[in-house]
C-alpha cells in the first residue's frame, strides 16, 4: 500500500537544512545511519508527476536513467559549497522510499512511501529575532499551509551556535503557535542538531569512533537542551494531547572522512569545504572521502516512525535527570 507523506524542513538560516536534504540519498545509499543495516532502506528521487501518479511502482525506463532534476541540482550545489535558499518560494523535493529488509511488519506493510520534503529559506519561518525581514506574503502563507498539512516536521538547528543564536525567540513562538493550531496534521516532529562533526574537531582520527557512540550523542543533546530551555515547549506537541511524537537526533552533512575518520572539513581549503581528490571536478572530487553522518535519521523517523540508535525521545533525555534527582 502506498503512503504519501509530507515533511517540512524548518530552522534558522545557515542551520544546514538544504545540506541535510542534499546528503540524504547518499546517506541512505552508504548506510551511514543509525538503523540496523538489515533494514535496507532505499530512497530514490522522483518527479512531481511520479509523486502524484496512481501507482507508486517505479517506471521500467527509470532503471537506467541518469539522475536529473531539482534534487540532482541541489546535490551539485552542495558539492560546490552550497547555495543560500532564497525567500522567493518554498521548494519541494520528492522521493520514493522502500524498506527491503527487516522491519516491524506494521511498518513494512505500509510501504512504499512517497515523500514530499519541503525546503525553504530559514528567514521565512524563523527570522532573526527583532529583524524586519521583507518576505513575500504569499510565500509565508504557502509555507504556513505546508506546515499545517505536513505529516512530519524536521527542525534543523546548528549544534555549535545554539547559545548565541539570534532566532530562538521566533522559533519558540512558532512552536507555540504550532502547538495551538487545531488544524495541524502533524504526527511526528524531529529536532536534528546539525554540524555534529564540529564537536569532534580536535579528536583527529578518533572523531568517528566517538561520534558513533549513541551515548555521546545523548550527552551532546542533553547539554544542548540545557542551553535551549525554550525547546521544552515541544512537549506540548507530544502525544497524547499534542498528538505527535517528538524525537531529537544529531547529524553531519559533511560527515567524517572515509578511512581517516576525522571530521570532513579541509583546513587547507578556503571557506568550509570537504576534503577532495585533486584534479577532479564536482561531486566526483568528494566521493572518495565523503561519508555523511546520520542525515537520513530525521527523514526515516519522520516517514517510518521507527527509532534508531540515535533518535531520542523526551523520556530518554529526561531519564538521567531523574536519576540525578
Amino acid at each position: 500500500m502506498t503512503e504519501r507523506l509530507s515533511i517540512c524542513l524548518i530552522g534558522p538560516k545557515k542551520g544546514g537544512k538544504s545540506s541535510l536534504l542534499a546528503s540524504l540519498v547518499d546517506c541512505v545509499a552508504q548506510s551511514a545511519f543509525g538503523y540496523s543495516p538489515r533494514l535496507r532502506p532505499a530512497l530514490q528521487p522522483i518527479t512531481e508527476a511520479e509523486y502524484f501518479a496512481e501507482s507508486a511502482e517505479p517506471k521500467k525506463a527509470n532503471l537506467l536513467s541518469v539522475e536529473q532534476g531539482d534534487y540532482e541540482r541541489l546535490r551539485r550545489e552542495f558539492a560546490e559549497g552550497g547555495l543560500a535558499t532564497d525567500t522567493l518560494d518554498t521548494y519541494e523535493y520528492r522521493f520514493r522510499l522502500t524498506v527491503n529488509g527487516e522491519a516491524p511488519p506494521a511498518a513494512v506493510l505500509r510501504g512504499p512511501w512517497l515523500l514530499e520534503i519541503i525546503d525553504s529559506a530559514g528567514e521565512i519561518a524563523v527570522p532573526p529575532d527583532g529583524a524586519e525581514v521583507a518576505i513575500l506574503n504569499d510565500v509565508k502563507a504557502k509555507l504556513a499551509r505546508q506546515m499545517l498539512e505536513a505529516d512530519a516536521i524536521v527542525i534543523v538547528l546548528p549544534l555549535v551556535r545554539l547559545e548565541d543564536s539570534g532566532w530562538s525567540g521566533n522559533l519558540a513562538r512558532l512552536i507555540d503557535r504550532l502547538a495551538l493550531a487545531p488544524e495541524k496534521k502533524l504526527k511526528r516532529l524531529v529536532v536534528v542538531f546539525s554540524q555534529y562533526e564540529r564537536l569532534f574537531a580536535r579528536l583527529g582520527p578518533s572523531a568517528f569512533t566517538y561520534a558513533c557512540d549513541p551515548a555521546v550523542a545523548l550527552h551532546a543533546l542533553r547539554k544542548s537542551l540545557r542551553a535551549a530551555q525554550w525547546l521544552d515547549r515541544l512537549r506540548a506537541l507530544e502525544a497524547p494531547n499534542g498528538g505527535a511524537s517528538v524525537r531529537f537526533t544529531v547529524c553531519s552533512a559533511y560527515g567524517f572522512v572515509k578511512r581517516f575518520q576525522n571530521p570532513n572539513i579541509d583546513p587547507h581549503q578556503p571557506g568550509e569545504r570537504r576534503f577532495r581528490r585533486a584534479g577532479l571536478e564536482g561531486a566526483r572530487a568528494y566521493n572518495e572521502y565523503w561519508r555523511p553522518f546520520l542525515t537520513a535519521e530525521p527523514f526515516l523517523y519522520a516517514a517510518l516512525g521507527l527509532d534508531s540508535a540515535f533518535t531520542f525521545s523526551y523520556a530518554q533525555l529526561d531519564a538521567r535527570i531523574e536519576e540525578i534527582a
Binding site: 545557515k14 550545489e77 559549497g81 552550497g82 547555495l83 543560500a84 532564497d86 581549503q269 578556503p270 571557506g271 568550509e272 569545504r273
Partner: peptide, 8 residues
Amino acid sequence: SGHGRLYQ
C-alpha cells in the same frame, strides 16, 4: 572574491 556559500 570569497569562496563561501553563494547567495542570490
